[in-house]
């Protein structure tokens, strides 16, 4: 059974059909890429999967449960983690505090515990710190834990968003253009991190324009164009697909 299933999903913004009857599945332990030209509907699909928006028609099943109408915090608590194409780090918080927010739903200390630093607050803070550091180590950002997140270069902001999402202990991780702004070496490091994350049992769906990265890392690729799915399959097959090549207007997919 797939861990995530997109079933006949359509999303309209007024007259604009951002997604049209899109169906595909994501299987446990996969790294899958979602590609397509600008405006194809990739981010829109991520928004539907993470509760930020609702499908106009169709369903999104996560572990068998329809999550298409959940609020974002509910989707997150079920196990859908995500990063954002346009950086959404908490700029004036430290890198570590950014990740600590990711432990929110995994801890319980409420207002009163915090006001009076009750034992529950102290217990939670210890565990939040440990998990947050652990998440930073997983992406190799622990050396910058105390720096303000707003000072990070763009590539590392995305890496921080990955750590933050990892802290929520997701089952599926949605990465929206994680390699944007990275140089070649950093992109290789990112690929390494993503593989490691997958090896730790997290299923990854990523949107990316860097075709080298996509073809190198993915088990499978889904291609969207103008909101329609035009191809799905292993990288080699996608690279040689006529319709995909036409959609990218001769862009070199190798």
């Amino acid at each position: 059974m797939p861990i995530l299933k997109v079933e006949a999903v359509t999303k309209r913004f007024g007259g604009l059909e951002a997604l049209r009857d899109v169906t595909f599945s994501l299987y446990d332990g996969q790294i899958k890429a979602l590609i397509g030209p600008n405006g194809a509907g990739k981010t829109t699909l991520f928004n539907l999967m993470s509760g930020m928006d609702r499908p106009t028609a169709g369903h999104i099943y996560f572990g068998g449960k329809d999550i298409g109408r959940l609020a974002p915090h509910q989707a997150s608590r079920l196990g859908v983690g995500r990063t954002f194409q346009h950086s959404k780090v908490f700029d004036d918080l430290s890198v570590l505090d950014n990740v600590k927010v990711g432990r929110h739903a995994k801890s319980t200390a409420g207002l009163l515990s915090a006001f009076f630093t009750l034992p529950r607050h102290r217990r939670d803070e210890r565990s939040i710190s440990e998990h947050a550091y652990h998440a930073l180590r997983r992406v190799g950002l622990e050396a910058k834990a105390e720096e303000p997140a707003g000072g990070l270069p763009m590539g590392e902001r995305h890496v921080l968003e990955i750590a933050r999402a990892l802290a929520t202990e997701p089952r599926v991780l949605l990465l929206d253009e994680p390699a944007a702004g990275l140089n070649n070496e950093e992109t290789d490091q990112l690929a390494e991190s993503v593989r490691r994350i997958r090896d730790q049992g997290i299923t990854v769906l990523l949107v990316e324009h860097d075709m080298g990265f996509v073809m190198d890392i993915s088990d499978e690729v889904v291609v969207l164009d103008y909101g329609r799915k035009i191809a799905e399959g292993p990288p080699l097959m996608i690279q040689n697909d006529e319709e995909v090549i036409r959609a990218y207007l001769g862009e070199d997919l190798n």
Binding site: P72, A75, F90, V101, G102, H104, E125
Partner: peptide, 27 residues
């Protein structure tokens, strides 16, 4: 005390980037 706690950080997160905070499980 609150500013330096789970709830305080959730509020700061909501203030700085609400969608990001909610994507991390903050109601």
């Amino acid at each position: 005390n609150l500013a330096d706690s789970r709830v305080g950080r959730a509020l700061k997160g909501l203030h700085r980037a609400e969608v990001a905070a909610t994507s991390l499980g903050v109601d």
